[in-house]
Design a protein around this nucleic acid. Structure first.
Lengths: 145, 145
DNA sequence: TTGACACTCATACTTTCGGGTGATTTTCCA
DNA sequence: TGGAAAATCACCCGAAAGTATGAGTGTCAA
């Protein structure tokens, strides 16, 4: 069975080859020219690849990394000083230059609450004024520079 | 003379052309094949040039803008906003978290003078509070981040 | 020399900030 | 489930900050 299949395949292949020979005989010139063309085409491509320097385009991209981009809050300091989430929020808004009233409006709390938070904040940061608080917080890595 | 030269050159060219015709006649096949070869060689080179993608190498040049870098004041903005020397001094001290009284003491002027300077400063920076002034100034490159 | 501008200072007033104290509610963890 | 911590709010008071207005001085350039 296997032998039969193989022999059949071989026969078929042989017949194809004969057919091919005939084709070559009758169109000898065309085949020849085509072969020449293909060979030199490939040669041309190869030559080009060999001779031309590798086309490397150096794109220099200047990336400015500002400290604010890669700011990671210093949680340790926050914990050490015992600064709560809400106090931190107030601190951030203070750093943005908002007044206590504006902060109160933004956080949906009363002015007195904001004052309480900021007071405790100043105490923990060991400062007396909001501007100093911002300074200290930036220095300690609590808020972005 | 000129005419003589031109005609001589023409004659020479004509003889050359005749010679070339003869060559073509006698070696027609070789010439044809060579032409094919040359054409496809060139085509191959051209193809290779067209098809090879430029190898782009992206070189990222990272520039860290750290606070330690020396600060260059944006004089242009200063001039545009019409901020005077004294006002700038006050602004810097405000940014340090000093109170108006402390600023007055440091600059050897009265509290009222400091208030006047800061008021004009706020007006020029289009802000209402010292904290906002610091924010704006840092953003505009008037004082170091 | 005159006008523009920066710097200085003052008075009066309003608003905001900060400290102090106390209280209630909410959240969360042991 | 009780209590500590956080968050909320209130009232008072003085200090600081900011606004408005006016004015005196010095400098510098047109």
């Amino acid at each position: 069975m296997l032998l039969y299949g193989v022999s059949l395949a071989g026969l078929l292949f042989f017949m194809r080859w004969l057919e091919f020979r005939l084709l070559v005989m009758s169109h000898a010139t065309e085949i020849y020219v085509a072969a020449i063309a293909v060979v030199f085409l490939v040669l041309g491509i190869w030559l080009a690849k060999q001779l031309t320097k590798p086309k490397t385009v150096l794109v220099e991209k200047t990336v400015y990394v500002s400290p604010s981009d890669e700011f990671t809050r210093n949680e340790k300091v926050l914990e050490e000083l015992g600064i709560s989430k809400r106090e931190l929020e107030v601190l951030e808004l203070i750093a943005l230059g908002l007044s206590n009233n504006e902060i109160a409006a933004r956080l949906f709390v009363s002015l007195n609450t904001v004052k309480t938070h900021s007071s405790k904040l100043f105490e923990k940061l060991d400062v007396n004024r909001r501007t100093q608080a911002v300074e200290a917080a930036k220095r300690l890595g609590i808020i972005p520079l």
